Simulated assay, not measured.
Amino acid sequence: MPHNIICTICARGGSKGVPNKNARIVAGRPLLSHTVNQARSSGLFDCIAFSSDSADYRRLAGQAGADLLIGRPDELANDAAGKIPVIRHCVEHAELATGTTFDLIIDLDCTSPLRLIDDIVACVELVKKESVNNVITAAPARRSPYFNLVERTEEGRIDLARKPARPILRRQDAPECFDMNASIYAWTRAALFEREGLFHPDTALHVMPEERSIDIDSELDFEIVSLLLERRESQL
């Protein structure tokens, strides 16, 4: 059973949709600080490692309570870099720095800060109790590829993204679908380092409501997340 648990928080400095979003002030503090604070407040982690190509982001993460601040190399900081190699790099450097081999890796994304600590706990428990090797989080989809999500085909025709075997007349009758929310990812060490890709036969899902699942990718997203975080802070 996993017992050495690391939290990785990875934030690239070069955002185009919302420039410098991870350092922008939301509910009184930089956006990235909310995620570092959640990790610290959970009490779950033996190490909280923050990875970024931005020295400013690393400074802010240190002020928020991250244990390790890891510089991300240029080849992992461009638009083509995938998430999994970045997390592997972070874990490897954290293991070298601490002399610890981590059994369980929990990655929290700064741009999806509306999660609750209970969501993080649930993902950890899924790996520990259900003997799965990785967990993703998602919200119930607002559109169904079987009913009202369409795509343009190579021939230029508009059609359902996924054609059902027989017509579906009500969205409620379509297969259950989810929108990944980029909030929490969990892996055993073997799954992270020995498997490729995110989806495997034993991948588990933790479902979160829409109001905790907004991933900031635009100014509108930023405004909505700001509103919800400020409302939450005012109710504490």
Rank of each mutant, 00 (worst) to 15 (best):
P2F: 00
I6V: 12
C7L: 00
C10W: 01
G13A: 13
G14V: 09
G14N: 15
G14M: 12
S15H: 12
G17S: 14
G17L: 10
G17F: 04
V18F: 01
N20M: 08
A23T: 14
G28Y: 05
G28Q: 09
R29Y: 05
P30K: 08
L31S: 07
L32Q: 06
H34Q: 06
Q38V: 00
S42K: 03
G43K: 13
D46W: 05
C47V: 14
I48Y: 02
F50L: 10
S51A: 15
S52Y: 07
D53W: 04
A55M: 12
G62A: 09
Q63E: 15
A64C: 08
A64T: 03
A66D: 10
D67Q: 09
L69M: 15
I70S: 02
I70N: 01
R72M: 15
D74A: 15
A77M: 05
N78A: 10
D79V: 07
G82T: 07
G82R: 14
I84N: 07
I84A: 08
V86E: 15
C90R: 00
C90L: 10
E92K: 13
A94Y: 01
E95R: 03
E95H: 06
T98K: 10
G99T: 06
T100E: 12
I106E: 04
D109P: 00
C110I: 05
P113E: 07
I117C: 06
I120R: 00
I120N: 02
A122G: 10
E125L: 11
V127G: 00
K128A: 11
E130S: 13
S131V: 08
N134I: 01
N134G: 03
N134A: 04
I136Q: 05
S144N: 11
P145S: 06
L149K: 12
V150A: 06
E151K: 11
E151H: 07
R152Y: 02
E154P: 12
R157L: 10
I158Q: 06
D159N: 09
K163T: 13
K163P: 03
K163C: 10
I168S: 07
I168P: 00
I168H: 03
L169S: 12
R170D: 07
R171V: 05
D173K: 08
E176G: 05
C177S: 14
I184L: 06
I184C: 09
Y185D: 14
A186F: 00
A186Q: 00
A186L: 00
W187T: 00
T188I: 04
R189K: 13
A190W: 11
A191K: 14
L192Q: 08
F193R: 08
F193K: 11
L198C: 09
L198I: 15
L198H: 10
F199L: 15
T203K: 07
V207G: 06
P209A: 05
E211N: 14
E211L: 09
R212S: 10
S213M: 04
S213G: 09
I214F: 02
I214R: 04
D215K: 04
I216C: 03
D217F: 07
S218I: 05
E219D: 14
L220I: 12
D221V: 02
I224V: 13
I224N: 01
L227K: 14
L227T: 12
E230A: 15
R231Y: 04
R232E: 15
E233Q: 13
S234C: 08
S234V: 03
S234W: 06
